[in-house]
């Protein structure tokens, strides 16, 4: 019933011992973990630094589109990944953020929030994304006062309450499904048409307490001390109206965690990192994989694949193009 989820720690003492790494991977989500696996198998001196192992996998209740698993909980998939790379003894420094990356040509210096300074020949940015905000009035004011971006974390607070889910992609639909055991009434609001998979949308058909408003844009979040409603624009009728609610789950995708390297590499308008066919960024020796890149389909299997690609490309770069010692 309590579902104990022990995070398996790997030995992190080695981060005080290695003078120069071949590859340091920033991020311990699907992209970073798989890159660690591939790099280690190539014999590289590789380490992973991650604030939270598993990344967005932990925000996902069930994953049913990762090849080989019909249906698996996000955290179980994360543990399965971690088990695999622990078998190869890939060192992981978890629980801390990287706070700065400097290019000391041809190498990189990486500084962590807990005071470590590490040198590496190459860096893989696999820092994924964080929840995208609606960017409308009331959103900051009511952050955590009725607004949530994590259904798995916060669903219990909506017990017997009315909740609105903003978004029309897979994660919004999964958010609705996460809320079903708790909420009294659920309203899904999305500014255009559904983008979610057909197979997920089918699951919505049987939920009696769900109302769906498509072509409806949220204009403002209303409330006093806590959220009490949202103001929306019905795009079909061009009329504004208010929908009352106790809470709002926002699931409208992610923004890339590229803030550490924005001044170092080329990014697109959405701040996503631009990479070449080998996952290399515009900066020699710096690679990027997963949700941080401009690749449009933010999925686990794509992130893991990009992680593998980057690790293999790093190996090639170190053998053929690396100019240092």
């Amino acid at each position: 019933m309590f579902n104990f989820n022990v995070e398996k720690k790997s030995n992190s003492d080695i981060f005080d011992q290695v003078k120069k790494w071949d590859l340091l991977i920033i991020g311990g989500g699907p992209a970073g973990l798989n890159a660690g696996l591939y790099a280690k198998r190539k014999g590289l001196v590789v380490g992973i630094i991650a604030k939270e192992i598993g990344g967005q996998l932990h925000n996902t209740t069930t994953v049913d589109n990762y090849l080989g698993f019909n249906m698996i909980e996000g955290k179980d998939l994360s543990n399965t990944f971690l088990d695999h790379i622990n078998q190869l003894d890939v060192p992981i420094l978890s629980g801390t953020n990287v706070k700065a990356i400097t290019n000391i040509k041809p190498d990189f210096q990486i500084e962590t929030e807990n005071g470590k300074k590490l040198i590496s020949k190459t860096v893989l940015m696999a820092t994924g994304g964080m929840p995208r905000k609606l960017g409308i009035p009331g959103e900051d004011k009511f952050a955590n006062k009725g607004i949530t971006y994590c259904a798995t974390c916060d669903a219990p607070f909506f017990k017997d309450k009315e909740v609105i889910v903003a978004g029309g992609g897979n994660s919004a639909v999964e958010g609705v499904l996460d809320l079903v055991p708790w909420a009294k009434k659920i309203t899904l609001v999305h500014r255009s048409q559904f983008r979610a998979d057909e197979i997920l949308l089918k699951k919505l058909e049987t939920i009696d307490k769900l109302t769906i408003h498509l072509q409806t844009q949220i204009l403002a979040i209303l409330g006093d001390e806590l959220v009490t409603g949202i103001q929306v624009l019905n795009k079909k009728t061009n009329k504004k109206h208010i929908i009352n609610t106790d809470g709002l789950l926002i699931e409208i995708g992610t923004v890339p965690n590229s803030y550490l390297i924005k001044d170092l590499v080329k990014t697109n308008q959405k701040d996503e990192v631009i990479v070449d066919n080998n996952q290399m960024t515009s900066l020699l020796g710096m690679f990027a994989s997963g949700d941080i890149t401009e690749q449009p389909f933010k999925q686990i299997i794509i992130a893991t694949a990009e992680g593998a690609k980057a690790a293999l490309a790093v190996n090639q770069y170190l053998n053929q193009n690396y100019k240092g010692e």
Partner: peptide
């Protein structure tokens, strides 16, 4: 915290 929150143990620690 809630028991299903992956970001919570970090804050507690």
């Amino acid at each position: 915290i809630t028991l299903s929150c992956p970001h919570c143990p970090g804050a507690v620690a």
